[in-house]
Simulated scan of single mutants.
Amino acid sequence: MTTARANDAPQRSGAAKRAFVALGANVGPRRATLEWALRALDASEGVRVVARSSWHRTAPVGGPVGQPAFLNGAAELETSRTPHDLLALMLELEVRTGRLRTRATQDGPRSLDLDLLLFADHIVDDARLELPHPRLEERAFVLAPLAEIAPDLVLPRCGVRVRERLAALGVPHEPTPAAP
């Protein structure tokens, strides 16, 4: 998804910034939904998908027993939106797939889960958003796809590269994409 569009005019926060997003789904047409989400992000004003990982099949972490496996991936964006505006877009896309974010569904099955992992060098900690994502460095299902597109990205909280953190979790830096 490296195609540029004529309407890529910056909006809201000025110059484009680099952001990373985790994508996941474990109900419905998972792959089709994730591909749709990438296209929808890329088609949104002030957002361009510049890199994306393959899809990784992973077991659910937490939540009700017996829920289906997830497909997870990661994408690098260039955006002229603010972090809160990008998050609002991501939440809107989740809702369009039927996702409801409530305390009761927090760790349950998801038609689409979009998490803003990093946004340039921004540090945000408010009621709506925490950047860097608070559990980014603990989750191999996020780090493995991220390592495909940005293995040398330094994680701000621990100061190590994505591939090094993934190895510290006992996961080799080798893509393990899901079968088609």
Score class of each variant (00 low, 15 high):
31 R>K: 15
104 A>E: 14
116 L>H: 09
134 P>Q: 09
179 A>G: 03
97 T>Y: 01
143 L>S: 01
124 V>E: 07
95 V>S: 12
122 H>L: 03
65 V>R: 13
114 L>R: 01
4 A>H: 13
110 R>V: 12
119 F>Q: 06
142 V>L: 02
47 V>P: 05
91 L>V: 03
23 L>F: 13
15 A>P: 10
99 R>D: 08
164 E>K: 03
81 R>N: 05
122 H>G: 00
38 L>M: 12
122 H>F: 10
46 G>D: 06
1 M>F: 13
157 R>E: 13
12 R>V: 11
9 A>C: 01
144 A>N: 05
91 L>I: 02
98 G>M: 09
1 M>W: 11
146 L>P: 02
87 L>R: 03
27 V>R: 15
94 E>N: 09
175 P>L: 08
106 Q>C: 00
128 R>D: 14
96 R>H: 14
16 A>T: 06
62 G>D: 07
57 R>S: 13
130 E>H: 14
108 G>E: 01
66 G>H: 07
92 E>I: 00
157 R>Y: 01
12 R>Q: 14
26 N>P: 06
159 G>P: 11
85 D>C: 07
93 L>S: 03
39 R>Y: 08
105 T>I: 01
130 E>W: 04
62 G>Y: 11
91 L>Q: 15
116 L>W: 12
117 L>N: 04
38 L>T: 08
2 T>H: 09
97 T>F: 08
33 T>K: 02
10 P>K: 06
168 A>L: 12
92 E>A: 14
56 H>Q: 09
167 A>Y: 06
63 G>I: 04
49 V>S: 09
104 A>S: 08
171 V>I: 15
138 E>I: 00
136 L>P: 07
116 L>I: 11
17 K>I: 01
9 A>R: 09
93 L>I: 07
131 L>P: 10
98 G>Y: 12
75 A>Q: 05
44 S>W: 09
48 R>Q: 15
107 D>A: 11
144 A>I: 03
36 W>S: 10
2 T>N: 10
48 R>K: 12
98 G>H: 08
33 T>I: 11
8 D>Y: 03
56 H>L: 08
14 G>S: 09
31 R>P: 00
113 D>F: 10
55 W>Q: 00
72 N>D: 01
164 E>V: 07
46 G>Q: 04
106 Q>W: 06
22 A>D: 02
144 A>S: 14
76 E>W: 01
64 P>A: 15
19 A>E: 05
98 G>K: 11
100 L>M: 07
155 L>H: 10
117 L>M: 13
96 R>K: 15
172 P>A: 14
69 A>P: 05
138 E>H: 10
171 V>T: 15
54 S>L: 02
180 P>W: 15
49 V>C: 14
66 G>S: 12
